[in-house]
Simulated assay, not measured.
Amino acid sequence: MALSSSTTGKLETLEEVVEIKSSADKLYAIITTEHHNVPKASSDHIHDVAVHEGDWETSGSIKLWKYTVDGTVETLKEKVEIDEANKRVSFTALEGHVLEQYKNYNSIIQVTPKSDEGSNLVKITVEYEKLNEGDQPPNKYLRFLVNVMKDIDAHLIAS
């Protein structure tokens, strides 16, 4: 696991890479087209997800999430963009608790299948713009996403 952060103008980023033991293809399917399975795989963190516009599988669809982060129940309306060629999915916050703290918030999850001697990897990137210069970076949301990926990984291994 590696954690890094950087600043580019007003848009800042946090990143972490997580090694997974399950199938990269199966994990990628859950985070792109099978969001309805996430509450089952990560019930301590994700309570519900529903389609607001579009469907479960189409890039550009909008989902409504209910989840708990650091003991607080929050909601998020986000737009999903799928980059099949790079096994990457981006979630752009449209409404919700996270936007009470950040002007812009995007999470990007990229799955890299293992090479001959390597492991399957999930790279989680959080891009954000602070509302106020003194605001803290969204470390709790990065930790939350790492935990959800680990939950999905464990769920896939147990299945």
Rank of each mutant, 00 (worst) to 15 (best):
L3V: 13
Y128W: 03
G134Y: 13
I152F: 01
A93G: 03
T13N: 11
E19G: 05
V38M: 04
K114D: 04
I82N: 01
T75W: 04
T33C: 03
K140D: 09
W56R: 01
S5Y: 10
S6I: 07
L142I: 03
T68I: 11
E100R: 15
E81Q: 12
E19V: 10
K114N: 11
D151T: 11
E117S: 13
N132D: 10
A2F: 08
T33G: 08
V126P: 03
N120F: 00
V18C: 12
I124S: 00
K77H: 05
V122L: 04
S107A: 13
D25H: 13
V98D: 06
F144Y: 15
L121V: 02
S115K: 13
L11H: 08
E78V: 01
N147W: 10
K114I: 03
N37V: 06
N104Q: 15
S23C: 09
A50P: 01
V148T: 09
N106L: 12
A93M: 09
D48T: 12
L76R: 03
T7A: 15
S6L: 08
T92E: 11
V18H: 08
A85H: 10
L142M: 12
T33H: 01
K77L: 13
S115I: 00
L3M: 14
L3T: 11
N147A: 12
K77Q: 15
L145P: 02
E127H: 11
G71P: 04
V89Y: 00
E95T: 04
D135L: 07
K130S: 10
D116Y: 08
E16F: 01
V38P: 00
L64W: 03
L131F: 09
S119P: 02
I30N: 01
A154D: 13
N106P: 01
P39C: 07
A50V: 12
D135N: 14
E84P: 04
H52W: 03
T32R: 00
N147G: 08
E81V: 13
A41P: 02
D70A: 15
H155P: 05
M1C: 08
R143E: 13
K114C: 06
T112G: 02
M1Y: 07
N106H: 10
T58Q: 09
N86L: 10
Y28E: 01
S90V: 14
G9K: 15
H155Y: 15
Y105L: 09
N120R: 02
Q110E: 15
V51A: 06
F91D: 00
V126R: 09
Q110P: 08
E129N: 09
V80Y: 00
K87L: 06
K40E: 13
T7E: 13
H52Q: 11
I109L: 14
E81D: 13
K103W: 05
T68P: 07
E19P: 11
E15K: 15
A50I: 14
W56V: 00
V18G: 06
M1K: 09
E129A: 09
K130E: 10
I31G: 00
S61Q: 05
S90E: 12
L99Y: 05
N106V: 14
G9C: 06
N104I: 05
I62M: 00
N139W: 09
G60F: 05
W56G: 00
V69R: 11
N37D: 11
D83W: 06
I157T: 14
I62W: 01
S61C: 04
D135G: 09
K103M: 04
S115W: 03
K10I: 06
L14N: 12
E129T: 13
V17K: 15
N147D: 14
D25W: 04
T68G: 07
H45Y: 10
E16D: 05
E34G: 14
